[in-house]
Design a binder for these strands. Structure first.
Lengths: 135, 135
DNA sequence: CTCTATCTTTACGTTTACGTCAACGTGACT
DNA sequence: AGTCACGTTGACGTAAACGTAAAGATAGAG
């Protein structure tokens, strides 16, 4: 038995999701916690899986996508897998991640511009209030 | 009338979505193309809006989120808006974008590791085939 | 004028990712 | 024994983002 375990509500609270969400992930086979009686007990490994799934969600991956990505890290499960297909999967994922990263950078640049405009509008306003003359 | 216009299927093809998707966006008020008779005609501005919406989708934003983000760039529409609320919206968006960027970087790092392992596995294999002795 | 391609509206269906009860079990207090 | 707090299993509901099929308008080619 693992030294540390978590209850479902502990994890739910830590990750800011509902217990329903975590049970739903179990229905979908994304995690399979131990049982103590009928209660679920999560190991640190389960916790990490959850964390990775939620990380995937944050950038818009489906739960299925997250699982596939996580499974790439598991050496033992990879034994049954074609090395070549794994390699190409990695390449694909990397490509979409890079695209996403570019999208994000573009958006951040856009936000910078908006912020500039806001700052200008604010300074003009305060100039008005203070009766300062603009250049 | 704008110099250049696009039909719905032109845009659908360019962006790799169906015409249904574009009409759905119109139902939701995300775009409102002109009409020539009853057929839709899209201006370059409409095209940009679509492009930005799809960019948002790629990083997991909802359509509503995309619209709100796009509206930040529109100076005229901002006239009716509270400057302070716009500023805080910008700050929020930036925060989640940075989080997403970090998530992506973490995943990319993970993929790098996987790729390393793959490369090792491959080289060992080719050593076997060639009868090369390993160090 | 017919045919074909491309558009239109209307409407119901589908997938994903949960929310929201309801009804019940279980251990710990008091 | 009663009553919380927390857990459990169904089962139905829902919002978002389209898919898909039906039925008709319209314009150009032959």
């Amino acid at each position: 038995m693992p030294a540390q375990t978590y209850t479902i509500s502990e994890l739910a609270h830590e990750f800011g999701v509902t217990t329903r969400t975590i049970r739903f992930y179990e229905e979908k086979g994304l995690v399979c916690p131990m049982r103590q009686g009928q209660k679920r007990l999560y190991t640190p490994a389960d916790r990490v899986r959850l964390k990775l799934i939620l990380r995937g969600k944050r950038i818009g991956m489906t739960l299925q996508d997250s699982v596939e990505l996580i499974d790439m890290y598991e050496p033992q499960r990879n034994s049954g897998r074609q090395l070549q297909s794994l390699i190409s999967s990695v390449a694909e994922r990397r490509a979409t991640l890079l695209q996403q990263k570019k999208d994000i950078d573009d958006m951040l640049a856009g936000l910078d511009e908006v912020q500039q405009l806001c700052a200008q509008a604010l300074s003009k306003r305060s100039n008005k209030r203070a009766g300062t003359k603009k250049k």
